[in-house]
């Protein structure tokens, strides 16, 4: 199916998601333009992870439509694959392939999905390892790296696929405090280069400096959506205010 109305890269129209009886997402409407940076925040269980996992079909939405760069997510495997090729994802727990060296982690999908020859895949892998500033770790196994380094590898692995969009699912939540900045720096650099990004995060400093829009979710709904200045200084909803006061004061 074709894109009905807009030039948005991501369109979610009236999306609902149920886990059995439990409604995880209620009537989500979201448009993300090319190059936009969105930060999603909200209490745990508010559906923010579920929302971005629906975008690359790690979760299947129950109702509504999701259209990525003109391709609608349907049950067709080939549509899902087409979308996944354009959407990179970075997970809270890194999820590197533990049995492969770092450079192999970056090469695998290039070779299998993009059918890129080994030598070229290796070159691309090393290029992005340079960009996240850990080329010297190329031949180590994930377990030998710190959490911050592993997460930077995970970002590089997503970049190797030359995605249009990168989704970040709480990328710094599993990190020791001293490693959070090295990951946020890489993400900020990416943002500056114009990558379209959706980040679920509680790093409000990052949201303030990088996001074009901040979205607050609660109980499966988008409660508030605004530019960071407005979002942080004069939130409209009481729920947003309560949430912000909790995470900004401690």
């Amino acid at each position: 199916m074709t894109n009905p109305t807009s030039d948005a890269l991501i369109q979610m129209i009236n999306v609902d998601k149920f886990f059995g009886e439990f409604q995880a997402l209620t009537n989500i409407n979201l448009e993300v333009k090319r190059g936009e940076k969105i930060v999603i925040c909200g209490p745990s269980g508010s559906g923010k992870s579920t929302l971005i996992r629906c975008i690359n079909r790690l979760e299947e939405h129950s109702a509504g439509r999701i259209i990525i760069d003109g391709k609608e997510l349907t049950d067709q495997v080939k549509d899902i694959d087409a979308v996944r090729r354009e959407v990179g994802m970075v997970f809270q727990s890194f999820n590197l392939f533990p049995h492969m060296t770092i450079v192999k982690n970056l090469m695998l999908a290039q070779q299998l999905v993009r059918k890129i020859p080994k030598a070229e895949a290796h070159k691309t892998a090393m290029h992005f390892l340079e960009r996240v500033k850990i080329p010297e770790q190329a031949n180590k196994y994930p377990v030998q790296l710190s959490g911050g380094q592993q997460q930077r590898v995970a970002i590089a692995r997503a970049l190797c696929m030359k995605p249009e969009i990168i989704l970040f699912d709480e990328p710094t939540s599993a990190l020791d405090p001293e490693m959070i900045n090295e990951v946020l720096e890489v993400m900020t650099d990416l943002a500056k280069e114009g990558m379209t990004m959706i980040c679920v995060t509680h790093e409000m400093g990052f949201a303030r400096s990088v996001a074009d829009r901040v979205i607050f979710m609660d109980a499966g709904e988008i409660v508030e959506e605004a530019e960071p200045e407005i979002f942080f200084n004069s939130p409209k909803s009481a729920r947003t205010k309560a949430f912000l006061s909790q995470i900004l004061t401690h």
Binding site: R84, V87, G88, F97, L108, L112, V113, A158
Partner: peptide, 9 residues
């Protein structure tokens, strides 16, 4: 999931 997200079948 990481494999799926990278487009592996």
């Amino acid at each position: 999931e990481a494999g799926s997200a990278l487009g592996l079948s």
